[in-house]
Computed example of a mutant assay.
Amino acid sequence: MSKKVKYYYDPESLAYRIISPKKLKKFGYAFLFLIASALFGFLCFVVLMNTPYFQTPKDKMQQREIDNLTLRYALLNKRIEDLDEVASNLEDRDNNLYRVYFNSAPIPTEKRRGIIDRARYKELEGFDNSELVINTSEKVDGITKALAVQSKSLDEILKLAKQKNKLLSAIPAIQPVKNEDLKHMASGFGYRSDPFTKARKMHEGMDFTAKTGTPIYATGDGIVKNADNSLSGYGNHIEIRHGYGYLTLYGHLSKYKVRPGQHVKRGDVIGFVGSTGRSEAPHLHYEVHKDGKVVNPINFYYGNISAAEYVVISKIAYQENQSLD
């Protein structure tokens, strides 16, 4: 096949002349063709290298490791979620059971969990699975903080429990005279008729009628404040400081069995019934003070009487009769 020949019209000679292509131009076309072919080939190579059909054995091994790590992280996240649920249950019991029982304020969620600063995971960014790793790290750090707060809270609860035992021992919770030793419960707390003036006045304790020499018991653990006759009208009397704002007073005793500064336990014999001071007959005048104010002692006899006995005593205590002092 003959090579095509191109002509152009020359107006000066009024004739057609053959077009002779320049060699440099031919070379340029050939070079551009080679460059374009090389670029196309490179792009094809890159595409093929990023498809699973043309992975090297090393690439396949790395991919399996990545898949395995991704699976392990997924399993780890599931275990973390289970741990988080357990931690949440502990927090709920801590706030709504333990701390309520010991009259302690609940710990708010923001203090238990806090806000995790994502800036601390800066070095984990920029990888294919960065978000997965960062989220897992956040969960682990969140649970770690929650468990640290919970541990500290349980230490506090243990301390409160020990204090609670002391408090329960200190509260004046029994009658100062045993039921079998009583003649009767003469007068209760409230406005009563004065045995000497017959005027109606506040009676700040309870009167227990018993024979002279009947044992009187400390109604709670404490330290003897006074054992003398320094208070007008009470005769020989004992005051016991129990702590936690509680103080008990035992009046009109015939004699003491304790001294000031002595530690006593609930149920210890501290003195004996008498009729000293402003008293009409042998009896024990008993008072309970809380935070400097007198309170009705009948509210504290849950330690050694039955419900039936409490009903009987309360009926007598609330009758507006005459006191014995």
Rank of each mutant, 00 (worst) to 15 (best):
K201D: 13
I174L: 01
Y53Q: 06
Y217P: 14
F33P: 00
P172Q: 08
A87K: 10
V86A: 08
P282N: 11
Y9Q: 03
D207P: 12
V269F: 03
P21D: 08
G114H: 06
V311R: 12
Y310C: 10
E280K: 12
G190Y: 10
L75F: 03
S169H: 05
H285M: 11
N50P: 03
H242F: 04
L83V: 07
L83T: 08
S306M: 12
Q150K: 07
S130Q: 06
V149N: 12
K290L: 03
Y29W: 03
L76A: 14
I223N: 06
A210T: 01
A218S: 14
F27G: 08
Y250P: 10
S169P: 00
Y256C: 02
V269E: 14
D207V: 12
L34S: 10
M61S: 09
I66P: 08
F42W: 07
F31K: 04
N165F: 04
Q319W: 06
E320Q: 13
K60M: 11
K164I: 00
L249N: 04
Y234D: 02
V264Y: 13
N236G: 05
N77R: 13
R17E: 02
V311A: 15
I223Q: 09
D10M: 03
S104P: 01
Y121V: 08
D117R: 13
I107M: 06
K211C: 02
E156C: 01
L39I: 15
G245M: 02
E91D: 01
F27E: 08
Y310H: 10
T212G: 11
M61Q: 08
I134K: 11
L324S: 14
K78P: 05
M206A: 14
A36R: 01
R241A: 09
A148K: 14
V288Y: 12
T136N: 12
S20I: 01
Y53R: 03
M202Q: 15
T219V: 14
D181I: 00
S187M: 13
S37W: 02
Y53V: 03
G28E: 01
I35F: 11
F54H: 09
E12F: 11
S2G: 14
Y73T: 14
I316S: 12
I134V: 14
S2C: 03
L34T: 10
Y16F: 12
H242A: 04
V269A: 02
R120H: 00
H203G: 10
I238A: 07
M49I: 05
L249Q: 10
R72H: 09
S2Q: 12
E131W: 04
Q319T: 09
D117P: 12
F45H: 06
N50G: 12
G213M: 03
I143S: 13
T219G: 11
K145E: 12
L247N: 06
Y246G: 07
E180K: 09
